[in-house]
Simulated assay, not measured.
Amino acid sequence: MKAVILLSGGLDSATVLYQAQADGCDCYALSFDYQQRHRRELTAARTIAQCAGVIDHQVVSFDLRQWGGSALTDVEIDLPQSRSLAEMSQTIPVTYVPARNTIFLSFALAYGETIAAERVYLGVNSLDYSGYPDCRPDYIQAMQTVFQLGTKQGREGTAIAIVTPLITLKKTAIIELGDRLGVPWELTWSCYAGGDEACGTCDACQLRLTAFAELGRTDPIPYGLNRNPQASL
């Protein structure tokens, strides 16, 4: 069974890749260089894909800086720093990239139909406090309808299935799942800041650090010296 895996290089997407392999899929990884602030994640994606031994790893390039609208694509917009979980949950944050998962899934659908894939795996999580609108179950259900109605494969046979194994898991449960699957956490990257070391203060770092701390563990990726590795939300 062929599957396209949307691989950002982060903790969640790496877990999804290893889950797809555990599900018996032949995995084709797809990553995106959209000129994001944190392009360091693409290095992680390439390394993880190689480590996992995927059949093919494609990196699609386009430039979302042309219209910005997000702290991840417009350096004039400051990243949120050192926010509590309560603060993260109040509104959709400035790190939301307009329609990003719709764009990503469209590429995955085109690629998947070309190689006759049966599944697309996506590491969205509706419990993350970031609250992105394109990480929620109703959005995934709507996109599944697009996969059914918008392709030859969907109209004439069986539509490619969108698989979201992490969508209802807490971050601690995702790490525990990844442990069982053998995910190399030290190769993953979540920080939004774009440096060679994780900042430890952006929302992505805070969520990740807190999950490892709740499990009584230290996150194995490098963080800057000006942060407390046991910081908690």
Rank of each mutant, 00 (worst) to 15 (best):
Y28I: 04
I103E: 11
Q21C: 06
L30K: 01
G123S: 11
Q144N: 07
S61G: 04
L122W: 12
A117T: 04
R37A: 08
A44E: 02
G10V: 01
A29I: 03
A204E: 07
L225R: 09
V54N: 09
L149I: 07
Q141P: 00
V183M: 04
L187E: 01
D138F: 03
A71D: 02
L177H: 07
G150A: 12
S89V: 02
Q36V: 02
G131P: 13
A159G: 05
A231L: 11
S13P: 07
D196P: 02
D78G: 09
K152C: 08
P98K: 12
N101V: 11
R37S: 06
L42G: 08
A3Q: 09
W185P: 07
F32R: 09
T172M: 06
Y28H: 15
L207G: 05
L127S: 07
I5M: 07
Y34C: 09
S232R: 13
G53V: 06
L169F: 12
C205N: 08
D179Y: 04
T102N: 11
Q21M: 14
T47H: 04
D128Y: 01
S8D: 00
Q66L: 14
T43L: 14
V60N: 06
S61T: 14
Y34H: 08
L181P: 00
T218L: 11
I160C: 02
Q230P: 02
M143R: 01
P222S: 07
I5V: 15
A159V: 10
P80G: 07
K152F: 14
L215K: 03
T145G: 13
G178V: 10
R136C: 10
A198Q: 15
R65T: 15
T15L: 09
E118Q: 14
S70L: 09
A159Y: 01
L85I: 08
R136G: 06
G157T: 10
L17D: 05
E156H: 14
E41R: 01
G182Q: 10
K170N: 09
D138G: 02
